[in-house]
Nucleic acid binder design. Structure first.
Lengths: 150, 150
DNA sequence: TCAATATAATGCGATATCGAACTAAACAAG
DNA sequence: CTTGTTTAGTTCGATATCGCATTATATTGA
């Protein structure tokens, strides 16, 4: 691989990193004190994918250490946004269920960040985002799979 | 803005977040114990942009709190990878210079991650990355500017 | 059957990151 | 000048995240 190819991937990952930080900041700014994007992300995952996930599944989904997920879930549980129930199929494990207030919290966050997204969309049209999406999806899938292969 | 537009931006930022985590993990895995991507990123910035930056400039460039940059720079200084000198133009301030060992550290990290990038490139061709880059750059610039406007 | 190994979650200590308060220097207005 | 305000960096306390070790349960294999 020529050096400019390495540099090219580096550049893209650099841009991705900056966009991640900026978008994270937009969402974070809309969350009430004491709640982080990590909390939102778990709730969002439980809604989008399906609740009843185990903590370990969640940790894997977010590439985070198990202990971090324990901590994040404790916060969500304390706030009443999730409920931790025993896993009937495995007594070592638990399953995480989102509550109605948890769902409301997630929806409120999404509504709150809408104006920010509109401001971005005003300059970067949705059709360009639409073109971007499948490329990013495939890149993500490739990297995700390669990670699992190790 | 229709709901699907909100969802579209959400999706893209979600993909971006996952790619960021995966690429960060690849780089992190190549760094010696005690060094994080945050350390590498600062060194990389000093090389790419120019060294002699002030800590505050660096903090802004990375969207991080000033105190975080103080901490990161202390680690780099302790390792001998940067040198902190007084800012002649402003006695409150400092300027950060990368050392030869700091440059070597950065270069080594880049070399080490090359195989990982090659593995990704084998499945996601460079020309697609090349198409992605300007779009991401523009999206980043827009979001960056909008942040400054507030 | 049961001993060895693997897995899920947690407890604990270390470090990263952050926000608030502080100090010193620079700047601005009178 | 000099006094009030802003700015650069740090200190300090709180919390997030991580790695390692531990406990409980599950799985495997002789």
């Amino acid at each position: 691989m020529p050096e400019n190819k390495v540099a090219l991937f580096f550049q893209v990952f650099n841009e991705v990193g900056i966009i991640e930080q900026l978008s994270r900041a937009l969402l974070q700014a809309q969350l009430p004190p004491g709640f982080l994007v990590s909390h939102f992300s778990v709730l969002n995952h439980l809604v989008r994918v399906q609740d009843g996930r185990t903590p370990l599944e969640l940790a894997r989904a977010f590439q985070t250490a198990k202990t971090t997920m324990t901590h994040t879930l404790a916060g969500l549980d304390k706030a009443g946004y999730v409920e931790m129930r025993p896993n009937i199929e495995d007594a070592r494990s638990k399953r995480v269920w989102i509550s109605d207030t948890g769902r409301a919290f997630r929806e409120q966050a999404i509504v709150s960040v809408k104006p920010d997204l509109e401001r971005v969309a005003a300059e970067f049209p949705a059709d360009r985002v639409l073109n971007l999406l499948p490329e990013l999806e495939e890149l993500r899938k490739i990297m995700d799979r390669q990670r699992d292969e190790n």
